[in-house]
Amino acid sequence: MTLLAHDRYCDQIAHQVAGLRAVVTSGTDLSATVPTCPDWSLEQLVRHMGGALRWVELLVRTRAQEHVPDERVPMHDGPEARGDAAALDAWLGETGEMVVGTLREAGPDAKVWGWAGTPSSGFWARRMTHEITVHRADATLTAGLPYDVAPDVAADALDEWLEIVEYIQRNVPHRAANEFHGPGRAIHLHATDTAPELNAEWIVELLEDGVAWRRGHERATVALRGPLTSVLLAFFRRLPLNSPELEIVGERELLEFWLERATFG
Score class of each variant (00 low, 15 high):
99 V>E: 04
148 D>E: 13
17 V>N: 01
32 A>R: 14
260 E>Y: 03
246 L>P: 04
134 V>H: 07
52 A>C: 14
228 L>P: 02
174 H>I: 05
37 C>W: 14
58 L>C: 04
159 D>G: 06
39 D>C: 09
185 R>S: 10
87 A>C: 13
20 L>G: 02
235 F>N: 00
264 F>K: 02
148 D>C: 09
184 G>A: 10
221 T>E: 01
81 A>K: 03
180 F>A: 08
86 A>L: 11
56 V>E: 09
124 W>L: 12
171 N>H: 14
117 G>H: 12
178 N>L: 11
165 V>N: 15
197 E>P: 11
254 L>N: 00
54 R>A: 13
160 E>L: 13
60 V>E: 06
88 L>T: 09
218 E>A: 15
43 E>C: 06
28 T>Q: 12
132 I>C: 13
214 R>H: 15
210 G>F: 06
87 A>G: 15
106 A>T: 11
181 H>P: 03
165 V>D: 15
90 A>S: 14
11 D>M: 06
194 T>R: 03
151 P>K: 03
104 R>A: 13
181 H>I: 02
154 A>P: 06
26 S>W: 09
220 A>S: 10
112 V>Q: 10
192 T>G: 03
204 V>I: 14
153 V>K: 11
237 R>A: 12
141 L>T: 02
128 M>L: 15
86 A>F: 03
69 P>V: 08
66 E>Y: 01
93 G>F: 07
208 E>H: 02
192 T>M: 04
111 K>Y: 09
149 V>N: 07
262 A>D: 08
72 R>W: 09
30 L>D: 11
163 E>I: 10
73 V>P: 08
201 E>I: 04
37 C>Y: 14
186 A>K: 01
194 T>S: 05
3 L>T: 11
3 L>N: 08
135 H>T: 08
107 G>T: 08
5 A>H: 08
188 H>V: 00
226 G>A: 01
167 Y>Q: 01
97 E>C: 08
98 M>D: 14
90 A>D: 12
126 R>T: 10
73 V>H: 02
140 T>I: 03
240 P>N: 05
42 L>S: 03
143 A>F: 10
246 L>C: 06
71 E>D: 14
213 W>P: 00
244 P>K: 07
205 E>C: 07
85 A>Y: 04
6 H>P: 08
214 R>N: 09
39 D>M: 15
188 H>T: 02
252 R>H: 05
36 T>A: 12
167 Y>V: 02
